[in-house]
Design a protein around this nucleic acid. Sequence first.
RNA 1: GGUGGGGUGGCCGAGUGGCUAAUGGCAGCAGACUGUAAAUCUGCCGGGCUCUGCCCUACGUAGGUUCGAAUCCUACCCCCACCA
Length: 421
Amino acid sequence: MPDLFTLLNERGFVHDATPGLPDRLRQGPITGYVGFDPTADSLHVGNLVPVMGLAWLQRTGGTPIVVIGAGTGMVGDPSGKRGERPILSVERIDANAQAIRAQLERFLSFEGANAARMRNNADWLRPIRLLDFLRDIGKHFTISYMLQKESVKSRMETGISFTEFSYMLTQAYDFWHLFLTDNCELQMGGSDQWGNITAGTELIGRREGKSAHALVFPLITTASGTKFGKSEDGNVWLDPKKTSPYKFYQFWLNTDDRDLERSLKFFTFLSLEEIRRVMDQQAGDPGQRAAHRLLAEELTSRVHGAETTKRVVAASRLLFGGQDLRAAEATVFQTLADEIPTLRMARAEVKGLPVIDLLVKAGLASSKSDARRGIQGKGFSLNAEPVSDVDRLLSEADLLAGGHAMLQKGKKNYALLVAES
RNA sequence: GGUGGGGUGGCCGAGUGGCUAAUGGCAGCAGACUGUAAAUCUGCCGGGCUCUGCCCUACGUAGGUUCGAAUCCUACCCCCACCA
């Protein structure tokens, strides 16, 4: 296996790195960390690049450390255009950290010789006294050094508070602290973290006379220019309660062709050889969407497990595979009910119900007006047939396989009606 | 602190008394074409309803003038530029 730097570089993870890093890695595995925000109880796909960075670090023999930024979260990072951070209770943060850890276990091993570690920077940042901080940390930084940082420079015009200005020092303190306690020599993060991370390597250099390293990942943008990791419902989460496995699978399956190769390199552990092979297949017959399927199945089974993936793939085939709904059996609908929003109603209530009301109840339309507009624009289907009449009522003939009806908004939004006797 | 400019729908940005729920662009949703792509074309796009129509809410905030205001007046709040 190549060393970490070579590997990450081949896969497109390296936006920038300190010059000494490749040499250091040739000498052997390293301990490295990435900081995560504890503001949510789940990771989302936007967090996966740093997660994969840590995973590769571990797979090349290194020891990954996950830092929960409960301490730094209290002051706010000026990097990026982030607004005020919400202040969370200690219990909340602990619960979030636990949930995030469980998700990370899909990517990192928390056991064995180079087990992943988890740290909360509030543990060491909270007890610091101001005067100690000024003497031990502040001494090592000149104002001009800090002013040169992009995160500060870009804010000089619009204004930056002292708190945010000094943020880089608290993050530098993290790195320094981990260098001492865990022999952590590398910090990774998004490219906007470059200034904060190098402040850490600077501090370690000055205080300890030793070198530490930085590696930052590129910012991911999609080919179509939208923000990566967002769907119409907002973030795509790893938590199945926030984003259903079906939606998760669909998210990856709908990857823009132009982003496929890069996504396979970023988000899967497939070898470059395997990726090249599936990309060749993709190029030969794009309609087959072999690379999409591989990407989506890899991610879904890693996050949600093989069993769930099987179900989700089956559900997708039913919805998109062109299978005749009228021929489908009740068990097929029951499978679907686990994957798509399902509305259960009494059979008596269903008969004669305006389709407009049904669409609202099923959540596919936000109001009756919305449903009407949608029908007029040919946007809704009932059992795969476009609804053309705004005043259409539901009848017995619409209930398939003993009481099921498939509602559809466009091609990708489904809801299932189950009429119960 | 002084002077000037400005705050319009998710965002950008027109509009300076009635024809304005407000031109245009972006984003979003849907249709056609496709591969559950991309590009392109088309429709919708403040909200609700008993929908060839009706009713709410809306142009920083609060008042005022007027038959009628995003547009005029007053006060206040906020933002930007230049000067100090």
